[in-house]
Simulated assay, not measured.
Amino acid sequence: MSHHSVFIIDDDAAVRDSLLVLLRGEGIRARGFCSGVDFFANLPGDATACVITDMRMPDMDGAEVVKRLMERRGGAWPIIVITGHADVPMVVQMMKAGIVDFIEKPFDPPMLIETVRGCLARLTDLDQVQSARAGAQLRLDRLTPRERQVFDALIQGASNKDIAITLDISPRTVEVFRAKVMTKMEADSLSALVRMGLMLG
């Protein structure tokens, strides 16, 4: 079972309930909301989740749901839009707004499950990236000021000789600091260190 939840927003109780039964039958945690207003009034606190929203709903339509979700959660909450009234301009507009997929009613259950699983897999990848970034940041914070200077220079592609000139130290001293940086950052190669630097921005 995925540890991520799927939130369904649809004013049609029959459609909402059928989606809940379908997803739960696949071992996916799912919760339903009768409208966008209901959803945002009871906005779950999950750091990451998948949202399935109907397009045409009273009070707040799917486009407004997508807009508000992107503002609050960004890509951490992938969105699937389902509708019985799809047209090309609408699809393009919604894809540009950040939705992951667009499914027309009546939807094919296996296709919907496959789409949801794709979203959940993406969230798992995102969790792993965030965890790796947090770990790398902790290690980076443990570097001394001088080690941090060497780290910054290394991920910019500077050679030992260039670093020595810039920091006004000997190339041998640079090698010592470089070894300390590699050990503290738990990097087994320069490329691994550079990847950490890119990941940390």
Rank of each mutant, 00 (worst) to 15 (best):
147 E>K: 04
143 L>H: 02
123 L>M: 10
65 V>P: 01
39 F>Y: 04
77 W>N: 01
61 D>W: 07
78 P>S: 12
72 R>D: 15
172 R>D: 15
42 N>I: 06
102 F>M: 06
177 F>Q: 15
125 D>R: 13
195 R>A: 15
97 A>G: 06
139 R>N: 11
7 F>A: 09
83 T>N: 12
125 D>F: 13
66 V>P: 07
162 D>N: 04
199 M>S: 14
159 S>T: 15
52 I>W: 05
90 M>E: 14
103 I>N: 00
28 I>W: 01
91 V>Y: 06
20 L>Q: 14
39 F>V: 06
68 R>I: 03
157 G>A: 09
196 M>F: 05
154 L>S: 10
77 W>Y: 05
158 A>H: 15
76 A>V: 12
152 D>Y: 05
66 V>E: 01
19 L>D: 06
149 Q>R: 08
143 L>V: 02
132 A>H: 09
23 L>F: 13
164 A>K: 04
58 P>I: 04
5 S>V: 06
51 V>L: 12
105 K>C: 04
154 L>M: 13
68 R>P: 11
83 T>L: 05
49 A>M: 10
135 G>Y: 12
96 K>H: 14
86 A>I: 07
181 V>R: 04
15 V>T: 11
99 I>Q: 08
11 D>R: 09
130 Q>T: 14
134 A>W: 01
136 A>Y: 02
161 K>N: 14
122 R>Q: 12
88 V>W: 11
168 D>Q: 12
6 V>P: 05
143 L>Y: 02
64 E>D: 14
56 R>F: 15
11 D>W: 02
126 L>P: 01
37 V>T: 13
128 Q>G: 13
185 M>V: 14
19 L>P: 02
36 G>I: 09
192 A>D: 13
37 V>R: 14
175 E>H: 02
59 D>F: 03
58 P>D: 07
198 L>D: 14
143 L>I: 00
40 F>K: 00
2 S>I: 09
134 A>V: 00
118 G>W: 00
72 R>Y: 09
134 A>F: 05
32 G>K: 00
82 I>C: 07
170 S>W: 01
22 L>A: 12
153 A>C: 08
157 G>C: 03
101 D>H: 03
115 T>P: 08
196 M>R: 10
78 P>Q: 01
46 D>H: 05
195 R>W: 02
69 L>V: 04
8 I>D: 03
81 V>W: 05
44 P>N: 01
154 L>G: 07
186 E>I: 01
156 Q>Y: 02
182 M>T: 10
6 V>Q: 01
49 A>F: 08
113 I>Y: 08
92 V>M: 12
126 L>F: 12
42 N>V: 08
168 D>T: 09
143 L>W: 06
22 L>T: 10
177 F>S: 11
98 G>S: 07
164 A>G: 13
132 A>E: 07
154 L>R: 00
55 M>R: 08
90 M>W: 06
55 M>G: 01
38 D>K: 00
81 V>H: 03
193 L>Y: 10
87 D>V: 08
118 G>E: 02
200 L>P: 03
173 T>V: 09
138 L>R: 15
143 L>S: 08
184 K>M: 15
